[in-house]
């Protein structure tokens, strides 16, 4: 089981704007306490290496032990974001992973990521409407574990 929130629709047009929007949402839900810490951390991770996984999907992640279990937030972008992508498909879906390194459910996340890598699963992810459909899409392929 994966804890999942959907936040339609991200209106920002820049990477920083997207992180702000997601940060606000997390702050409201009391998942994080300081939005600026959150943005700095996520951006730092991006500097180490791109979290863009192709086909218009990015998977920024944020590590914290202030939450009980890891969770993922799905955001769909309204506009084209100023976010360079090597495969030239503009970013349309953001899967923000909030990870507690000690969470017992992290194995589910690993499984989710592996399924994302399977061919075809990233195609048209923007057309998915709710989290049930999203989960269904990602559970269609066998587990690679």
């Amino acid at each position: 089981m994966i804890n999942m929130f959907t936040q339609y629709i991200l209106k920002a047009q820049s990477k920083r704007g997207i992180y702000c929007e997601l940060g606000n949402f997390l702050e409201k839900k009391k998942i994080i306490s300081n939005i600026w810490n959150f943005i700095a951390e996520v951006e730092l991770r991006d500097q180490y290496g791109s979290t863009n996984i192709g086909n218009g999907v990015a998977v920024p992640h944020y590590q914290t032990d202030q939450i009980d279990t890891s969770l993922v937030i799905i955001g769909v972008c309204h506009d084209v974001i100023d976010w360079p992508t090597p495969d030239s498909i503009p970013i349309g879906v953001i899967l923000l992973f909030i990870i507690n390194p000690h969470s017992a459910r992290n194995d589910n996340f690993k499984c989710l990521m592996r399924n994302l890598a399977s061919k075809g699963n990233l195609d048209d992810l923007t057309s998915v409407h709710d989290k049930e459909e999203f989960l269904l899409r990602l559970s269609e392929t066998p587990n690679y574990g």
């Binding site: 991770r45 180490y48 290496g49 979290t51 996984i53 998977v59 992640h61 590590q63 890891s70 992973f97 990870i99 390194p101 992290n106 996340f109 690993k110 990521m113 592996r114 994302l116 890598a117 399977s118 690679y144």
Partner: peptide, 17 residues
């Protein structure tokens, strides 16, 4: 290896395999 061991590294695992 990735920063969390959960994110991009899992994705890479499948691709490298």
């Amino acid at each position: 290896v990735c920063t969390t061991g959960i994110g991009t590294s899992q994705l890479l695992q499948v691709k490298i395999h």
